[in-house]
């Protein structure tokens, strides 16, 4: 698995309004084009060849599955921010302020009182 690459997806999409729109409207297509042409970019001139998403990571991203992402140790700030961008407005209109954030927390209730999966990028430091 590549926690780094999952985080890179969240980071690069959240900061780009056009990518974010596509991720909201058609996540499968956006994840595919991200893997082809955006993820591999080291910068505007250089490509890196060393990172990849696992099937589970790809499916979690396609499914906007923030529970799975939390359990994989994706960074909490990136995950919260991008899904607020995608869902907050619609939830707000339907169910009021913070309703999305509270549902997000509710779906993670089984982690209350336990050690969360680590956001550290190396495996040995499982904390």
């Amino acid at each position: 698995m590549s926690k780094y690459y999952v985080n890179k997806f969240l980071f690069t999409v959240d900061r780009d309004p056009e990518l974010l729109r596509r991720y909201k409207e058609d996540p499968r297509s956006l994840v595919a084009s991200w893997e082809q042409s955006i993820g591999p970019k080291l910068n505007d001139a250089e490509l890196s060849t060393v990172n990849f998403l696992t099937d589970a990571e790809r499916e979690a991203l396609i499914g906007h599955d923030y529970v799975a992402l939390f359990e994989m140790g994706a960074h909490f700030f990136l995950s919260l921010t991008i899904f607020i961008a995608i869902y907050d407005e619609d939830y707000m209109a339907k169910s009021g302020p913070l309703s999305f954030q509270r549902e997000f927390a509710e779906k993670l209730q089984h982690w209350t009182g336990k050690d969360y999966p680590s956001v550290a990028l190396w495996q040995a430091a499982a904390r």
């Binding site: 939390f70 960074h75 954030q101 927390a105 982690w111």
Partner: peptide, 9 residues
């Protein structure tokens, strides 16, 4: 807490 079960309480 951000992005976890104890957020936005």
């Amino acid at each position: 807490e951000l992005g976890g079960p104890r957020q936005f309480k």
